[in-house]
Write a protein that binds this DNA or RNA. Structure first.
Length: 395
DNA sequence: TCTGGGGTCCTAGGACCC
DNA sequence: TCTGGGGTCCTAGGACCC
């Protein structure tokens, strides 16, 4: 049996968060909908195709989207549900082949070479995948089919919404060269601006540039990579597995924070959330980073690498507080974040004894209480606000 | 219009080591 | 007095992705 000529599939869920909401809320079908943060600083996370016709797109501030479409339905994000739906979709993909690379919560590459004894071609596999996701999960997916990841990804974009598109071997350059350079993986706003200055608008223009010129303007790795992509060359394999390299939490405040005590309380709460996520994932890490964005949107990071990996709040907090002291005065704060990198599994990372760290039994018990009754069920006294929240009687 | 949250990877300089 | 070559690790920032 000959190999498939186009063995790589890119499966991309259409308006994923919106479609998950629509399963349980029929009134959202066929109308302009966005899912996103609904606070005054929220942005669009997912927009229905009806909403996109108004010029609405991901990452756009919600207030702006509302102005573009008077009848827009705005739904607050519920990441727990999207995560569940994502798990179900990935289970379906892995029923077809174990060669699945998760790109994000709603996107994956598949190498379906191994199915050549069971299907006449990879397009038939793609049809079966789409039909299964539709019937079992009630969700639309688009699939791009090609000889490599770059082209499969671009093909799925061309297939959207709820479609399928194959780039036949031999037709790669014909498909690729008319596309705008911005469509290429790795060409963002900054690279696009640099390329525009070189007179590059399409992928075809890019392919006409000498390799040296690209490496000079974009750097060694990015330049060389882009030069190959412009020719349709992409030998990156579909990589399964892929362990997390960092874990982080961050929060943009409804109003910028100026009060030092309040800032420290938020930083502490972030350490708590991060610690809970690390332990749930059975991970610990050595490099702690804090992120601070001031009112003018300028972002600074400070990081410190410890001798031993940590996962408990107290250890994260000790380091985060010391890093906060290194940031210096920068006026009102818009965002705070805490992250951990240089990860190891918690089992191999036996922690050194640290002062102020609660006994393992205490941590285990509070984790179990939170699993059962929610994250707010047990909290350190430090995270209790000094002023009562609006509407509460005693605080 | 005014810019979320969670990630990955690259670059560049400095410290440090052989 | 003038001071190599190469490697790793750490830190800060930035581009990019969904």
């Amino acid at each position: 049996v000959p190999d498939f000529a186009e063995p790589i599939l890119h499966v991309d869920m259409d308006a994923f968060f919106v479609e998950v909401e629509r399963r349980s809320r029929p009134e959202l079908r066929g109308v302009p909908v966005i899912v996103g943060g609904l606070g005054n600083r929220g942005v669009v996370a997912s927009a229905s195709y009806e909403a996109r016709r108004f010029g609405i797109h991901s990452a756009m501030p919600v207030v702006h989207a509302r102005r573009l479409c008077r009848t827009l339905h705005c739904v607050p994000s519920d990441h727990g549900r999207y995560h569940e739906a994502s798990t179900a979709v990935f289970e379906i993909l892995r029923e077809f082949t174990p060669e699945v690379e998760a790109v994000s919560v709603d996107e994956a590459f598949l190498d379906v070479s191994g199915l050549r004894l069971h299907y006449p071609d990879s397009a038939t596999v793609a049809d079966a995948i789409r039909a299964t996701i539709r019937s079992r999960e009630g969700l639309p997916a688009s699939v791009g089919i090609a000889s490599n990841k770059l082209l499969a990804k671009l093909a799925s974009q061309a297939a959207k919404p709820d479609g399928i598109r194959r780039v036949a071997s031999g037709d790669e350059v014909e498909f690729l060269h008319p596309l705008p350079v911005r469509a290429l993986w790795g060409v963002g706003e900054a690279t696009h601006a640099s390329l525009e200055r070189l007179g590059v608008a399409t992928v075809g223009d890019l392919a006409a540039l000498p390799r040296d010129a690209l490496v000079r303007t974009l750097g060694r790795v990015a330049g060389a990579h882009l030069w190959e992509l412009a020719r349709g060359i992409d030998e990156r394999p579909v990589a399964t597995g892929g362990e997390a390299k960092s874990v982080s939490v961050e929060e943009t405040f409804e109003q910028d924070l100026s009060d030092a005590v309040e800032i420290e309380q938020h930083l502490f709460e972030l350490c708590e959330r991060l610690s809970a996520r690390l332990r749930r994932a059975r991970l610990a890490g050595r490099t702690v980073t804090i992120k601070v964005r001031s009112a003018d949107f300028v972002t600074a990071t400070r990081s410190h690498t410890l001798h031993a990996p940590v996962d408990v709040t107290a250890a994260l907090w000790d380091t985060a507080r010391a890093l906060w002291g290194k940031v210096g005065e920068r006026g009102p704060i818009r965002l705070l974040g805490v992250g951990v990198a240089a990860l190891q599994s918690a089992e191999e990372a036996r922690q050194l004894p640290l002062t102020g760290v609660p006994a393992p039994e205490v941590i285990e018990v509070t984790d179990r209480i939170k699993e059962r009754f929610g994250d707010d069920a047990v909290r350190p006294a430090r995270t209790v606000r000094r002023r009562p929240p609006p509407g509460s009687e005693r605080g």
